[in-house]
C-alpha cells in the first residue's frame, strides 16, 4: 500500500521532519508492505483548503491541519486559544496526545462529522510576537497594528489585549512589516526565520500564550477501512512519535533562533509570570467567544483539556496556581 501524507509546510520544516521519521518507522515496521509518500506544501497545491479537500475526498488520506483548519473543523480553533495550555511544551504535547483528550468523544466527533479523524497533535513551538517596540504588558500593545490571520477569534484575542489587529496576506507580510504597514507579527520561531520577518523587526517577545499546533488527521473512510494490523501499526507509531515530535520541534526552533540571533541584533524578551498573567486575564473571556462560535462540543473539548491540566498537578502558572 501507499500512504500519501500531505504537509502544510515545505522541506526542512517541523512537519517535514516528523513525516520523515514517521515514514521510516512505518516502512520498517511493515517490512516494506507500506510505502509512505510525503507530499509537502506546493506539491498538492498552494491553498490550504485544497489540501483539506484532498483529505476529505480521500485522495490524500493522511495529513496535517493547523490554524487554517478552522473553517473545515471549527472546534480545531481550540488550538489557537491563548493561555489554555500548560507553559511547558512537552507537557502540553503529552496532554494533547493523551487518550483522555485525543480519544474523547468531543474531539473525535468534531472531526468525524466532517469526514476526518484526529490522530495526534504536533506542537511546533510557541507562537512568538515580534514588534518594533518592546512589549511587556498589555499597555505596551495598545493600538499596535499587529498582523493576525483573517480569523474572528484571533482578532478578538488581540483586540482584548488592546492591539489593533490588521490582516495582511502572508505573501505581502514581509513588505508590510518593512514599510511599517504592520507593526507586529505572530509566528512560530522557525517561520520568523524562514520568511526573514526578523530582519525587519526589532523585538521578539516570548509570551508563551499559545503554541503553533498541527493536527495529524486522516480521512475517516480510509482510517476505518484499514485492517486491524495496519490500524494498530499506525496507532502505535503515532504514540512513539509523540516524544520524537517534541524533540524535532525543540531542536529546529533552537537552531532557527540561533540563526536569528547571529544574523540580526533583534532583542529577545521573555515575559515573566506576572506579566503573562496580565495577558492571561484579558484572554480568558475569549474562551466564551470560542464556545459561542463553535458550539457545546468545542466547549466540552476545552473543558477536558483544562481538566487534564489540573489532574496533572499543573506545573504551569495557569488558573490553578501552584509553582
Amino acid at each position: 500500500d501507499t500512504w500519501r501524507f500531505g504537509l502544510e509546510e515545505t522541506e526542512g520544516s517541523v512537519q517535514y521532519e516528523y513525516a520523515q521519521a514517521f515514514k521510516q518507522l512505518i516502512e520498517k515496521k511493515s517490512d516494506g508492505d507500506i510505502t509512505v509518500q510525503i507530499l509537502p506544501y506546493g506539491v498538492w497545491g498552494s491553498s490550504y483548503s485544497t489540501l483539506y479537500d484532498a483529505i476529505q475526498n480521500g485522495s490524500i488520506p493522511l495529513s496535517f491541519g493547523s490554524g487554517f483548519l478552522g473553517g473545515t473543523v471549527p472546534e480545531s480553533q481550540l488550538m489557537s486559544l491563548n493561555y489554555v495550555m500548560p507553559n511547558d511544551q512537552l507537557e502540553a504535547t503529552e496532554i494533547l496526545n493523551s487518550d483522555a483528550f485525543m480519544k474523547s468523544d468531543a474531539w473525535q466527533q468534531s472531526f468525524r462529522t466532517r469526514g476526518l479523524v484526529p490522530l495526534a497533535a504536533l506542537p511546533e513551538g510557541y507562537q512568538v510576537w515580534t514588534a518594533n517596540k518592546a512589549i511587556h504588558t498589555p499597555a505596551d500593545m495598545q493600538g499596535l497594528q499587529i498582523r493576525v490571520m483573517d480569523n474572528s477569534l484571533l482578532r478578538a484575542t488581540y483586540q482584548a489585549y488592546g492591539a489593533s489587529p490588521i490582516t495582511i496576506a502572508y505573501g505581502e507580510l514581509y513588505s508590510a512589516l518593512q514599510q511599517g504597514q504592520a507593526e507586529g507579527n505572530i509566528q512560530p520561531v522557525w517561520a520568523h526565520e524562514n520568511m526573514g520577518f526578523y530582519e525587519v523587526q526589532d523585538y521578539m517577545i516570548f509570551a508563551e500564550q499559545s503554541q503553533f499546533i498541527a493536527n495529524l488527521i486522516a480521512n475517516e473512510d480510509w482510517y476505518d477501512g484499514l485492517s486491524d494490523d495496519q490500524r494498530q501499526l499506525l496507532d502505535t507509531t503515532i504514540h512513539e512519535m509523540v516524544k520524537k515530535g517534541d524533540e524535532i520541534q525543540k531542536q529546529l526552533n533552537q537552531d532557527r533562533l540561533k540563526t536569528i540571533e547571529e544574523k540580526s541584533d533583534i532583542k529577545i524578551i521573555h515575559l515573566d509570570q506576572a506579566q503573562r498573567d496580565e495577558f492571561r486575564k484579558l484572554a480568558k473571556p475569549i474562551r466564551d467567544d470560542f464556545v459561542n462560535l463553535v458550539g457545546e462540543r468545542g466547549g466540552k473539548a476545552l473543558d477536558i483539556l483544562l481538566e487534564q491540566e489540573k489532574a496533572r498537578g499543573d506545573k504551569s502558572d495557569g488558573d490553578s496556581q501552584s509553582s
Binding site: R4, W44, G45, T50, D53, A54, N57, S59
Partner: peptide, 10 residues
C-alpha cells in the same frame, strides 16, 4: 493520483 474533484478545488 488526483481525480477530477480535485481539479475543481484547484
Amino acid at each position: 493520483f488526483f481525480g477530477p474533484d480535485q481539479a475543481v478545488s484547484w
